[in-house]
Every structure is written in C-alpha cells, then in structure tokens.
C-alpha cells in the first residue's frame, strides 16, 4: 500500500517544486521529556531525561543528570547527558509489567516531583527465518523483498521491524523503521510469510547519501512485538517526522505518551527476535570493490 502512495505522490510531485521558506512560531513553554524502553535482550536499558526546546533555531537540548530514576524500585545509574542505565544483565520478561519512577525537582521549587509510568512487555514472536524473494525483476537493478516467516499470535498486530546491514542499524531513524499498519483482523493467528523491507543495490540513507549493497553483505532482520503504548507512540512519531501530504495526511497532532505528571515521552516495551541472510551473487549484487 505504501508503494501506491509513493506512486501517487510521484505523479503529483512530478510537476511540483520545493522551496525553503521562513516561518516563525511562538516558542511553547519548555516541558520535561522522559523516554526509554524495556526489551527482551540483556543489555543496559537507557532512560533519557531532557526538556523541549523551541522548534526553530539550534538551541542545545537541556538534559537532567541529577534525577533519581528507578525501574521496579531498582535505581539506575547516571551516565551523564541525561542518560540513566540499568545493569547490563537487565532483561525484560514477556508478560511482566515494569514501573518507572523519576524523582526530579524540574520546576525548581526545592521539592522534587515524581514522574511515573508503567509498561508491560508483550508476548514474544519468534522469527523462524527470513528470505530474499525477487520483487521487481530488472537485470540492471533488481529489487528484492525481505520476507519474514513466523507464526502470528491472536491479538493486536503491533509489529515493528529493524534492519541491519553488516551490523549497522539501517533503521536508526524513525522514518526508516517499519511499523505494521494492518489491524487485528488481518492475518489473525496465521502463519506469516510476508515482505517487509525491500532492498536494491543502492539504498537511500538521507537526501544526499546512499548505502551500497554488495555480495557477501549480511542483512539482519529484527522483529519487534511492540506493546500498545510504544506502538502508538512510534506510529504517530513516524507520521509527524515524515511530514504531511495533503492527499492523505490528517492534521498534525502531538505524539501520545504515557508519562504521568505532565512530562512528554514514552516508557515502552518490545520483544526482539533476529534472523540474518547473506546477499549472494545470484541476487544480482555486485562484488565489493577493493579498498584503495
């Protein structure tokens, strides 16, 4: 479906031009922002504390490193720059609820406030395998779809997916992160055998830079089962960051979160399951050029 939107947008925009323009908006009063996630992988889980800045301009984001941050009453240690980490052995358990408590005197009245949130790790979806299947067959630049194979569980289809190219996270920006848009009535309890990402010899990284794929590259697919709070947050954030096309987009709106006490941000949870595939010469990818 996304391809159709792209096709239609291309038709429209074939005649369109873009131009930088000056806009001034009022600066909203600063608000505290708390973000962080629980996953099913053992690693230091990070909670970040900062505050909003004016939308335009290049004001530095102010961070808070002197808060008391706890998850299930276990205090996290400060890494500086507003980041707090759990122990490296911390791992989320599917079905378990985690409570975040941040104690911080944000309003500067000498009495610390408490900002809290709860999040539950969803049930695990385990990837059986991933495979490459031809999507668009041209000899010069074939497009390959990355197919995922796993058993869907009944309930909301709040999937997300990361893509790694040789251990580099290609989906490090939300615009490239995959968020499933199909609802609960689609593929309910079915065995999923479906394309999620497509790759070709050149992938866009940003407006100017591209990533080149070669034979022997390792493509890793990471399936995330997102809890509802985090799914809603990512879906809305993706929409807000991608901008609006008047043909399809509704009016902009704030990204929803779950932090109490008037703070923005999200305390989410998701599961992780990964599988890899190696690009081969038969897929039409060139040999990596030798380093000069």
């Amino acid at each position: 479906m996304r391809n159709f939107f792209i096709l239609i947008s291309c038709l429209l925009l074939c005649a369109a031009c873009t131009e930088r323009m000056d806009i001034t908006t009022d600066n909203a009063a600063p608000r505290l922002v708390i973000t962080g996630c629980i996953t099913t992988e053992a690693m230091p889980h990070i909670i970040s504390i900062s505050q909003t800045v004016g939308y335009f301009g290049n004001e530095e984001v102010k961070t808070y490193s002197d808060a008391i941050v706890k998850i299930n009453d276990v205090r996290l240690h400060s890494l500086g720059s507003g980041q707090y980490a759990t122990a490296a052995s911390f791992v989320g358990t599917p079905g378990q609820t985690y409570a975040l408590d941040v104690e911080l005197d944000y309003d500067g009245n000498g009495i610390p406030e408490h900002y809290t949130a709860e999040t539950t790790v969803p049930a695990m979806h385990v990837l059986d395998s991933v495979s490459l299947q031809l999507a668009i067959s041209t000899t010069t630049d074939p497009v390959w779809a990355i197919f995922v194979h796993f058993q869907d569980q009944p309930g909301p289809n709040t999937y997300g997916a990361h893509l790694y190219i040789n251990d580099m996270q290609y989906t490090s920006k939300i615009q490239r992160y995959y968020v499933n848009v199909f609802g609960e009535t689609t593929a309910e309890g079915q065995y999923i055998n479906f394309p999620v990402f497509s790759i070709r010899r050149e992938l866009n990284w940003d407006e100017d830079e591209k990533i080149h794929l070669y034979t022997g590259d390792n493509i890793t697919f990471e399936l995330n089962e997102l809890n509802t709070v985090y799914y809603d947050f990512l879906r809305a954030a993706k929409r807000e960051i991608s901008g609006g096309n008047p043909l399809f987009a509704g009016p902009p709106a704030n990204v929803p979160g779950n932090i109490s006490g008037g703070a923005l941000g999200v305390f989410g949870a998701y599961t992780i399951s990964r599988k890899s595939v190696i690009l081969e010469e038969k897929h039409g990818f060139p040999q990596r050029p030798e380093e000069p």
């Binding site: 909203a28 490090s172 939300i174 954030a237 704030n254």
Partner: peptide, 27 residues
Amino acid sequence: VTFPEARYLFGNDYIPVYTARNTYRFP
C-alpha cells in the same frame, strides 16, 4: 494549519510538539 512550537530528541529524531490545532496560517 498547525505548526510545531517545540521539539524534543528521541533517538536520532526530533519529535515536534504542538500547543493548539490550526492556530497558524499558510501565506
């Protein structure tokens, strides 16, 4: 139109913050 009045950092992205709907206008 609704324009953002603040932003915050989430990972590598800035997420816009709005205060009210349709308070600004196109030229």
